[in-house]
Simulated scan of single mutants.
Amino acid sequence: MARGSGGGGGRSSKESRAGPFFMATLVMWGISVFFEILFNKRSELVPILIGFAFFQSANVVIRKFVSRDPLFVNTCVSLLHSSITSASVVLILLNQSTKTSISKMFEHSQLVKVTWPWAYQALCFSCGYFAYDQWDMLLYRLYSGWIPSILAHHLVLLVCFTLALYRKVTINYLILTLICELHSIFLHVRKVRRMAGLRDAGTKIVKAEWCLNWLTFVLARLISHILITVKLVRDAHKFDKGVELPLALFGMAGMNLLNIFLGIDLFNAFKREIKSQKEQDNHQD
Protein backbone atom coordinates (compact mmCIF):
# COMPACT_ATOMS: atom_id res chain seq x y z
CA MET A 1 0.00 0.00 0.00
CA ALA A 2 1.19 3.50 -0.82
CA ARG A 3 2.72 5.48 2.00
CA GLY A 4 2.37 9.24 2.33
CA SER A 5 5.45 11.43 2.41
CA GLY A 6 4.34 12.72 5.81
CA GLY A 7 4.97 15.96 7.64
CA GLY A 8 4.10 19.41 6.46
CA GLY A 9 2.49 22.40 8.03
CA GLY A 10 -0.62 22.31 5.87
CA ARG A 11 -2.28 19.51 7.80
CA SER A 12 -5.93 20.06 8.68
CA SER A 13 -7.07 19.89 12.30
CA LYS A 14 -8.90 16.62 11.53
CA GLU A 15 -5.76 15.16 9.99
CA SER A 16 -3.69 16.23 12.98
CA ARG A 17 -6.08 14.31 15.26
CA ALA A 18 -5.63 11.08 13.31
CA GLY A 19 -2.15 10.49 14.73
CA PRO A 20 -3.10 10.62 18.43
CA PHE A 21 -6.13 8.39 17.81
CA PHE A 22 -4.14 5.65 16.09
CA MET A 23 -1.29 6.01 18.59
CA ALA A 24 -3.79 5.52 21.42
CA THR A 25 -5.18 2.36 19.79
CA LEU A 26 -1.65 1.05 19.29
CA VAL A 27 -0.76 1.67 22.95
CA MET A 28 -3.98 -0.10 24.05
CA TRP A 29 -3.09 -3.04 21.79
CA GLY A 30 0.42 -3.18 23.30
CA ILE A 31 -0.96 -3.15 26.86
CA SER A 32 -3.33 -5.98 25.93
CA VAL A 33 -0.49 -8.12 24.53
CA PHE A 34 1.76 -7.52 27.54
CA PHE A 35 -1.14 -8.33 29.89
CA GLU A 36 -1.76 -11.64 28.12
CA ILE A 37 1.93 -12.59 28.22
CA LEU A 38 2.74 -11.47 31.77
CA PHE A 39 -0.48 -12.07 33.72
CA ASN A 40 -2.20 -14.82 31.73
CA LYS A 41 1.09 -16.65 31.12
CA ARG A 42 0.58 -16.73 27.35
CA SER A 43 4.23 -17.37 26.44
CA GLU A 44 3.19 -18.52 22.95
CA LEU A 45 2.53 -14.83 22.17
CA VAL A 46 6.17 -13.84 22.75
CA PRO A 47 6.96 -14.05 18.97
CA ILE A 48 4.81 -10.90 18.60
CA LEU A 49 7.37 -9.00 20.70
CA ILE A 50 10.24 -10.71 18.86
CA GLY A 51 8.75 -9.62 15.54
CA PHE A 52 8.39 -6.02 16.72
CA ALA A 53 11.97 -5.96 18.05
CA PHE A 54 13.38 -7.63 14.91
CA PHE A 55 11.88 -5.13 12.47
CA GLN A 56 12.67 -2.16 14.72
CA SER A 57 16.29 -3.37 14.81
CA ALA A 58 16.30 -3.66 11.02
CA ASN A 59 15.02 -0.08 10.89
CA VAL A 60 17.93 1.10 13.06
CA VAL A 61 20.53 -0.74 10.96
CA ILE A 62 19.19 0.60 7.63
CA ARG A 63 18.91 4.12 9.06
CA LYS A 64 22.53 4.01 10.26
CA PHE A 65 24.25 2.34 7.31
CA VAL A 66 22.07 2.98 4.23
CA SER A 67 19.84 6.08 4.44
CA ARG A 68 18.20 8.32 7.01
CA ASP A 69 15.17 9.05 4.81
CA PRO A 70 12.21 7.76 6.92
CA LEU A 71 10.17 6.68 3.88
CA PHE A 72 13.10 4.81 2.33
CA VAL A 73 13.89 3.06 5.63
CA ASN A 74 10.25 2.15 6.18
CA THR A 75 9.93 0.73 2.66
CA CYS A 76 13.11 -1.35 3.01
CA VAL A 77 11.86 -2.87 6.27
CA SER A 78 8.49 -3.56 4.62
CA LEU A 79 10.34 -5.34 1.81
CA LEU A 80 12.15 -7.43 4.41
CA HIS A 81 8.84 -8.36 6.06
CA SER A 82 7.19 -9.28 2.76
CA SER A 83 10.13 -11.50 1.81
CA ILE A 84 10.25 -13.31 5.16
CA THR A 85 6.49 -13.70 5.48
CA SER A 86 5.85 -14.92 1.93
CA ALA A 87 8.69 -17.45 2.26
CA SER A 88 7.28 -18.61 5.61
CA VAL A 89 3.77 -19.05 4.20
CA VAL A 90 5.04 -21.05 1.21
CA LEU A 91 7.13 -23.30 3.47
CA ILE A 92 4.21 -23.85 5.87
CA LEU A 93 1.93 -24.85 2.97
CA LEU A 94 4.56 -27.12 1.41
CA ASN A 95 5.29 -28.78 4.75
CA GLN A 96 1.60 -29.41 5.41
CA SER A 97 1.03 -30.75 1.88
CA THR A 98 3.59 -33.49 2.56
CA LYS A 99 1.56 -34.66 5.57
CA THR A 100 -1.96 -34.61 4.17
CA SER A 101 -3.85 -34.24 0.91
CA ILE A 102 -4.54 -30.83 -0.56
CA SER A 103 -8.30 -31.34 -0.31
CA LYS A 104 -8.08 -32.18 3.39
CA MET A 105 -5.80 -29.18 4.02
CA PHE A 106 -8.57 -26.82 3.01
CA GLU A 107 -11.43 -28.47 4.86
CA HIS A 108 -13.34 -26.14 7.17
CA SER A 109 -12.23 -27.90 10.34
CA GLN A 110 -8.58 -27.70 9.27
CA LEU A 111 -8.75 -24.00 8.50
CA VAL A 112 -10.69 -22.97 11.63
CA LYS A 113 -9.87 -25.32 14.50
CA VAL A 114 -6.47 -26.81 13.55
CA THR A 115 -3.18 -24.91 13.42
CA TRP A 116 -0.53 -26.05 10.96
CA PRO A 117 3.05 -26.40 12.26
CA TRP A 118 4.72 -22.97 12.63
CA ALA A 119 1.60 -21.14 11.46
CA TYR A 120 0.91 -19.67 14.90
CA GLN A 121 4.48 -18.40 15.30
CA ALA A 122 4.50 -16.96 11.77
CA LEU A 123 1.25 -15.09 12.43
CA CYS A 124 2.62 -13.75 15.73
CA PHE A 125 5.81 -12.58 14.01
CA SER A 126 3.85 -10.83 11.27
CA CYS A 127 1.56 -9.25 13.89
CA GLY A 128 4.69 -7.81 15.51
CA TYR A 129 5.66 -6.29 12.17
CA PHE A 130 2.30 -4.55 11.72
CA ALA A 131 2.64 -3.06 15.20
CA TYR A 132 6.18 -1.88 14.38
CA ASP A 133 5.05 -0.42 11.03
CA GLN A 134 2.15 1.40 12.67
CA TRP A 135 4.56 2.85 15.23
CA ASP A 136 7.11 3.88 12.58
CA MET A 137 4.53 5.59 10.37
CA LEU A 138 3.08 7.45 13.34
CA LEU A 139 6.53 8.46 14.58
CA TYR A 140 7.63 9.91 11.22
CA ARG A 141 4.14 10.85 9.95
CA LEU A 142 4.35 8.59 6.90
CA TYR A 143 0.63 8.93 6.20
CA SER A 144 -1.83 11.45 4.81
CA GLY A 145 -5.53 12.25 5.09
CA TRP A 146 -7.69 12.73 8.16
CA ILE A 147 -8.56 9.00 8.04
CA PRO A 148 -5.28 7.51 6.72
CA SER A 149 -6.10 4.26 4.92
CA ILE A 150 -2.75 2.67 5.74
CA LEU A 151 -3.20 3.27 9.49
CA ALA A 152 -6.79 2.00 9.37
CA HIS A 153 -5.62 -1.05 7.42
CA HIS A 154 -2.98 -1.89 10.04
CA LEU A 155 -5.43 -1.35 12.89
CA VAL A 156 -7.93 -3.79 11.35
CA LEU A 157 -5.15 -6.35 10.81
CA LEU A 158 -3.91 -6.00 14.38
CA VAL A 159 -7.41 -6.48 15.77
CA CYS A 160 -8.22 -9.50 13.56
CA PHE A 161 -4.82 -11.16 13.99
CA THR A 162 -4.63 -10.61 17.75
CA LEU A 163 -8.16 -11.86 18.45
CA ALA A 164 -7.44 -14.98 16.41
CA LEU A 165 -4.16 -15.51 18.28
CA TYR A 166 -5.84 -15.04 21.67
CA ARG A 167 -8.61 -17.51 20.81
CA LYS A 168 -6.42 -19.84 18.71
CA VAL A 169 -8.96 -20.06 15.90
CA THR A 170 -8.86 -19.37 12.12
CA ILE A 171 -5.04 -19.26 12.26
CA ASN A 172 -4.72 -21.18 8.99
CA TYR A 173 -7.22 -18.90 7.28
CA LEU A 174 -5.11 -15.88 8.23
CA ILE A 175 -1.92 -17.59 7.06
CA LEU A 176 -3.56 -18.07 3.66
CA THR A 177 -4.38 -14.36 3.45
CA LEU A 178 -0.68 -13.57 3.95
CA ILE A 179 0.19 -15.17 0.62
CA CYS A 180 -0.49 -11.67 -0.73
CA GLU A 181 2.92 -10.69 0.66
CA LEU A 182 4.38 -12.28 -2.48
CA HIS A 183 2.91 -9.36 -4.38
CA SER A 184 3.96 -6.86 -1.72
CA ILE A 185 7.59 -7.79 -2.44
CA PHE A 186 7.36 -6.28 -5.91
CA LEU A 187 5.40 -3.26 -4.70
CA HIS A 188 8.21 -2.44 -2.29
CA VAL A 189 10.94 -3.28 -4.84
CA ARG A 190 9.37 -0.80 -7.26
CA LYS A 191 9.24 1.92 -4.61
CA VAL A 192 12.83 1.34 -3.49
CA ARG A 193 13.95 1.29 -7.12
CA ARG A 194 12.27 4.62 -7.86
CA MET A 195 13.58 6.25 -4.68
CA ALA A 196 17.05 5.09 -5.70
CA GLY A 197 16.62 7.03 -8.96
CA LEU A 198 16.16 4.05 -11.30
CA ARG A 199 13.13 5.11 -13.32
CA ASP A 200 13.89 3.95 -16.88
CA ALA A 201 10.79 1.93 -17.79
CA GLY A 202 12.47 0.70 -20.96
CA THR A 203 15.08 -1.46 -19.24
CA LYS A 204 14.67 -5.23 -19.12
CA ILE A 205 14.88 -5.26 -15.34
CA VAL A 206 12.00 -2.81 -14.95
CA LYS A 207 9.91 -4.65 -17.55
CA ALA A 208 10.49 -7.94 -15.70
CA GLU A 209 9.61 -6.23 -12.43
CA TRP A 210 6.29 -5.05 -13.84
CA CYS A 211 5.49 -8.52 -15.23
CA LEU A 212 6.09 -10.08 -11.81
CA ASN A 213 4.18 -7.22 -10.16
CA TRP A 214 1.05 -7.88 -12.24
CA LEU A 215 1.38 -11.68 -12.08
CA THR A 216 1.62 -11.78 -8.30
CA PHE A 217 -1.09 -9.13 -7.92
CA VAL A 218 -3.56 -11.28 -9.85
CA LEU A 219 -2.58 -14.68 -8.43
CA ALA A 220 -1.32 -14.01 -4.89
CA ARG A 221 -3.58 -11.10 -3.98
CA LEU A 222 -6.70 -10.70 -6.14
CA ILE A 223 -7.64 -14.32 -6.91
CA SER A 224 -6.42 -15.79 -3.61
CA HIS A 225 -8.44 -13.33 -1.52
CA ILE A 226 -11.54 -13.87 -3.66
CA LEU A 227 -11.22 -17.65 -3.23
CA ILE A 228 -10.82 -17.26 0.55
CA THR A 229 -13.96 -15.07 0.64
CA VAL A 230 -15.92 -17.62 -1.42
CA LYS A 231 -14.75 -20.39 0.92
CA LEU A 232 -15.93 -18.40 3.95
CA VAL A 233 -19.36 -17.79 2.42
CA ARG A 234 -19.79 -21.43 1.37
CA ASP A 235 -18.82 -22.70 4.82
CA ALA A 236 -20.73 -20.03 6.77
CA HIS A 237 -23.16 -22.61 8.19
CA LYS A 238 -20.24 -24.62 9.61
CA PHE A 239 -19.02 -21.83 11.89
CA ASP A 240 -19.99 -21.86 15.55
CA LYS A 241 -22.00 -18.92 16.84
CA GLY A 242 -19.61 -16.13 17.78
CA VAL A 243 -17.45 -13.40 16.31
CA GLU A 244 -15.28 -15.62 14.09
CA LEU A 245 -17.45 -15.56 10.95
CA PRO A 246 -18.53 -11.88 11.10
CA LEU A 247 -14.95 -10.82 11.80
CA ALA A 248 -13.59 -12.99 8.99
CA LEU A 249 -16.15 -11.72 6.48
CA PHE A 250 -15.59 -8.12 7.53
CA GLY A 251 -11.82 -8.53 7.22
CA MET A 252 -11.99 -10.16 3.78
CA ALA A 253 -14.47 -7.56 2.53
CA GLY A 254 -12.00 -4.87 3.55
CA MET A 255 -9.09 -6.70 1.92
CA ASN A 256 -10.98 -7.20 -1.35
CA LEU A 257 -11.97 -3.54 -1.41
CA LEU A 258 -8.37 -2.49 -0.78
CA ASN A 259 -7.24 -4.83 -3.56
CA ILE A 260 -9.53 -3.04 -6.01
CA PHE A 261 -8.11 0.36 -5.04
CA LEU A 262 -4.59 -1.05 -5.15
CA GLY A 263 -5.20 -2.45 -8.63
CA ILE A 264 -6.42 0.95 -9.83
CA ASP A 265 -3.38 2.68 -8.32
CA LEU A 266 -1.08 0.07 -9.86
CA PHE A 267 -2.66 0.51 -13.30
CA ASN A 268 -2.33 4.30 -13.10
CA ALA A 269 1.31 4.00 -12.03
CA PHE A 270 1.97 1.62 -14.92
CA LYS A 271 0.39 4.07 -17.40
CA ARG A 272 2.46 6.94 -16.02
CA GLU A 273 5.71 5.02 -16.40
CA ILE A 274 4.85 3.96 -19.98
CA LYS A 275 3.87 7.52 -20.89
CA SER A 276 7.05 8.92 -19.36
CA GLN A 277 9.16 6.40 -21.28
CA LYS A 278 7.44 7.25 -24.59
CA GLU A 279 7.98 10.97 -24.01
CA GLN A 280 11.64 10.29 -23.24
CA ASP A 281 12.02 8.21 -26.42
CA ASN A 282 10.34 10.90 -28.55
CA HIS A 283 12.61 13.56 -27.04
CA GLN A 284 15.70 11.52 -27.92
CA ASP A 285 14.46 11.05 -31.50
Results as ranks from 00 to 15, higher is better:
K168T: 09
T162R: 10
C160L: 12
I179D: 00
A201S: 14
F161M: 08
R190I: 11
L187T: 09
W146E: 14
C180G: 01
P148Y: 06
Y120L: 11
V159L: 14
E181V: 01
E181F: 01
R190S: 12
L198M: 08
A122V: 12
E181M: 00
L187S: 06
L123P: 00
W135L: 15
D136I: 13
L142E: 06
I175L: 08
W135P: 06
Q134V: 03
L151R: 01
M137P: 04
V169I: 14
A122C: 14
S184F: 03
I185R: 02
N172F: 02
I171L: 05
L187I: 14
C160W: 07
C180F: 03
C180A: 14
Y143F: 15
Y173L: 10
C124L: 09
R190E: 10
D133C: 09
F125C: 03
M137N: 12
H153L: 09
H188N: 13
A131H: 06
M195C: 07
F130H: 10
V159Y: 14
H154K: 09
C180M: 13
C124E: 02
A152H: 05
L151P: 00
L178H: 05
V189W: 11
I171F: 02
P148V: 07
F130P: 01
L123Y: 02
D133I: 03
Y143R: 08
I175T: 05
P117G: 10
C124A: 12
D136E: 15
L178K: 04
R167E: 13
F125K: 01
F130C: 04
I150E: 05
I147L: 15
H188Y: 07
D200Q: 08
S144V: 11
S149W: 05
A201T: 02
D200I: 02
D133A: 10
Q134K: 09
S126N: 13
A201C: 11
L182Y: 03
Q121Y: 08
I179N: 00
L138Y: 06
P148D: 09
A201L: 04
F125D: 00
H183V: 00
G128R: 03
L151W: 01
A152W: 09
P117M: 10
T170P: 01
Q121W: 07
H154W: 06
D136Q: 13
A201V: 03
M195S: 12
T177E: 07
Y132T: 06
L198N: 08
L182Q: 02
H188F: 05
Y173C: 03
L155T: 07
L142H: 07
L182G: 03
F161P: 00
V159E: 12
K191T: 14
C127A: 12
V156K: 12
F161H: 08
D200W: 02
A119D: 02
C124P: 01
L178F: 07
P117F: 08
P148S: 12
V169W: 00
D133M: 05
G128T: 08
K168Q: 15
S126V: 06
S144R: 14
R193Y: 08
R194C: 09
H153M: 09
E181G: 01
L176H: 04
F125L: 08
V192M: 13
Y166T: 06
P148N: 12
G128E: 04
A196I: 05
Y166Q: 14
K191D: 10
S184N: 11
Y132H: 11
S126Y: 04
